[in-house]
Nucleic acid binder design. Structure first.
Lengths: 169, 169
DNA sequence: GTTGAGGTAGAGGGTTTACTCTACACGGTC
DNA sequence: GACCGTGTAGAGTAAACCCTCTACCTCAAC
């Protein structure tokens, strides 16, 4: 099942949510059409499964084993987000992409919101300032969207702004 | 032609880039299929026309008649972006949505880049600090993406961060 | 009144799509 | 050996899609 979800995630990340046909998804998942439909009974479910998998991988990669110190932790989070962008999401956040492809789908929107809320909460906790979750959302969302436009300059600026967040308090 | 582009923009903004069929787009454009194909000879072109129109409207709404003073101008830009989100783009930036729907399309990517570059440049100019374009990109992109998640709290935080941008220089 | 450019309405073709269903292979348990 | 759950391979269906094309209308210019 995780193998299927991983394949689906890879396919959607590469080709977007609209283009790939179910047969393409089947190839990416590496199973037969029947098995694919057994675990994800519709294309919609395939999107959902891919995003669930994405969420777990993202949280794991960005927030595992952070330093205790708030400054170092925040800096590490920013670096890891940049690494994630470079390696996995050069086209932007997959959750926003999924919602953009199907703006009417309330279930997807809920998934996006849960994902972003958990990211913000964990980042604020790592920083040691749970009250700064909105500012952190802006910085991380801004970094994610700007990375493909500005490259590593976005990382430098994001760190600068994160620093300014703590100091003048 | 602008009427067609306006209708297309509205349709894509409402239903995303994948879902609406050409017949739906025809209804939104308010012309016959033949005329629609005359001005936009393929579905791809329809997307393009919609985004061009979107770009002009966005620039106009966010950057027209800004105050001279850098502080006030920047604050006004942030407010207007929030107004734009509330009125037109509750599902996020349309350019990112278009690219996400067709990540392979280089032409769309170029359009996105031009749009964002012009926004950042104008914002930096309005602020009176052309060297802060990357930071402004992060704030505006962050605000745009966070608005649907955090609502007006995102506006408050964005202004706070914009202020911090200038003061400790 | 005629002409010609540019519009509408909508049927049709050929392709692609999401999904179902049949036929068959394998591997562990009685 | 018989059986059953779980897998693969892939043909088949009904609908939807993008785009083209024919037939007709409108209206301004001369």
């Amino acid at each position: 099942m995780t193998k299927i979800a991983a394949g689906l995630e890879r396919a959607f990340a590469q080709k977007g949510f609209a283009a790939p046909s179910v047969e393409t998804l089947r190839d990416a998942a590496g199973v037969s059409l029947r098995t694919l439909y057994k675990y994800t009974p519709s294309r919609e479910e395939m999107v959902h499964a891919a995003l669930e998998h994405r969420h777990r991988r993202y949280i794991e990669q960005v927030f595992h084993d952070l330093p205790e110190d708030g400054d170092l932790a925040l800096s590490a989070v920013i670096d890891r987000v940049a690494t994630w962008m470079a390696r996995e999401a050069s086209h932007g956040c997959l959750f926003h992409a999924a919602v953009a492809a199907a703006p009417q789908d309330r279930r997807l929107r809920a998934l996006l919101k849960r994902h972003k809320a958990e990211v913000a909460e964990r980042a604020a906790a790592a920083m040691g300032r749970p009250d700064h979750d909105v500012e952190l959302t802006i910085i991380l969302e801004g970094l994610t969207q700007s990375w493909s436009l500005c490259g590593d300059a976005a990382v430098v600026s994001a760190k600068k702004m994160a620093k300014a967040l703590r100091e003048p308090a």
